[in-house]
Nucleic acid binder design. Structure first.
Lengths: 140, 140
DNA sequence: TGAGATGTAACTATTGACATTACAACAGAT
DNA sequence: ATCTGTTGTAATGTCAATAGTTACATCTCA
C-alpha cells in the first residue's frame, strides 16, 4: 500500500504557484507541463486544494494563487486536502464476538492505531510550504 | 488511501495464538472463525508471518505458534511482514527536468517524506505483542 | 491408508488511481 | 457580440491491489 501521488503532485503545484507567481500565469496546462501529467488531473487536485481553502482559482481567465501565507500551509494541510480517508488503517470488519479475542481486539488496538496515525500527522504538521519554497529557491 | 486489513488481521492472529495456545490447536480454520473471513486469507497471512520469522507453522498436523517471545515482536515487525511497499509515499514519476521546480522537487521533499515515515514506524516499534496480549487478557 | 491440515493456483468481484477525450460555462480582449 | 483561453466536470478506459472462494496436491500423524 502506498499513498496516491496526489500529495506530491499537490505540493509540486503549490511550489510552482509560489515560484512562478510573478512571472507566469500558473494554469492547469502550465502545471501539467512541469509535473508531466494530464491537465485534468491538475484541475481535480487544484479543486481539492481550493475546497480546503489553500488556493484560489480564477475561473474564466485562469490561473491559481495561494489563499494563505505559505508559512500557514503545512504538509498536513495538503495531505488532508487530497486524501479523504479519516483513518489510516482498515480494520477487518466483523471479528467474531463469540470469541474472546474477536470481542476485544478493537478496543485493544484502536488507541494504538490512533497514536501511530497521530505520530505521522504531527510530523507532517511540522513542515510548512514556506520551508519547501525556501529550499527550492536555494537549489535553483 | 488506507492500509489493507492485513495488519489488523495479522495482529488478531497473533493474539489468538498466544491466548489459545494451551487450550486449542490454532489452525487456519480456527482463526478464520474468530476473524470471520476465509481460511485461505488466513493461510496467506500466516505464510507472510512465517517468512518473517514471527510464527512457526506445523505442516501436515496443522497449528501455528510464535517463533519468538511476544515481547520481541512489535507492531512494526508485523507491519513489515504484511505490507511489502518500502516507501509509504508514491512520488509522481517524471517531473519535468526542464522546469526549475520539476528538477528540484524530489531532493526538496524526499527527506521530509522519509522523516514522516520514520515517525510512523517509530511509533509502531513501541508497541509489543506482549502489551497487546496483556491488555487482551485484562479485558477478557 | 485415512483424516485433517497446509500451500497454492485459478478465478471473480470490487475498488481506487491515473489518464484521456469531450464539452459546457466563464471572463476578458478585441 | 464574438473569439480565445481557461476552468469544471462527466464519461470512459486501463491497470493494480484487496478480498473472497473453490479446488487440489502435499504433508504428518494416528
Amino acid at each position: 500500500m502506498q499513498f496516491s501521488s496526489r500529495l506530491t503532485i499537490a505540493t509540486h503545484i503549490l511550489l510552482c504557484i509560489e515560484t512562478f507567481k510573478d512571472d507566469y500565469k500558473v494554469t492547469s496546462n502550465f502545471l501539467a507541463g512541469s509535473i508531466n501529467t494530464n491537465p485534468v488531473i491538475i484541475r481535480n487536485i487544484l479543486g481539492l486544494l481550493s475546497s480546503a481553502g489553500i488556493v484560489k482559482i480564477k475561473a474564466g481567465i485562469g490561473g491559481a494563487s495561494l489563499a494563505k501565507s505559505p508559512d500557514e500551509i503545512t504538509l498536513l494541510d495538503i495531505f488532508k486536502a487530497v486524501e479523504k480517508e479519516e483513518s489510516l488503517f482498515h480494520f477487518h470488519e466483523n471479528p467474531n464476538r463469540q470469541c474472546p479475542v474477536g470481542r476485544t481486539v478493537h478496543s485493544v488496538m484502536d488507541n494504538k492505531l490512533d497514536n501511530i496515525q497521530s505520530a505521522m500527522e504531527n510530523e507532517m504538521d511540522k513542515i510548512t510550504l514556506n520551508q519547501l519554497v525556501k529550499e527550492t529557491k536555494e537549489q535553483i
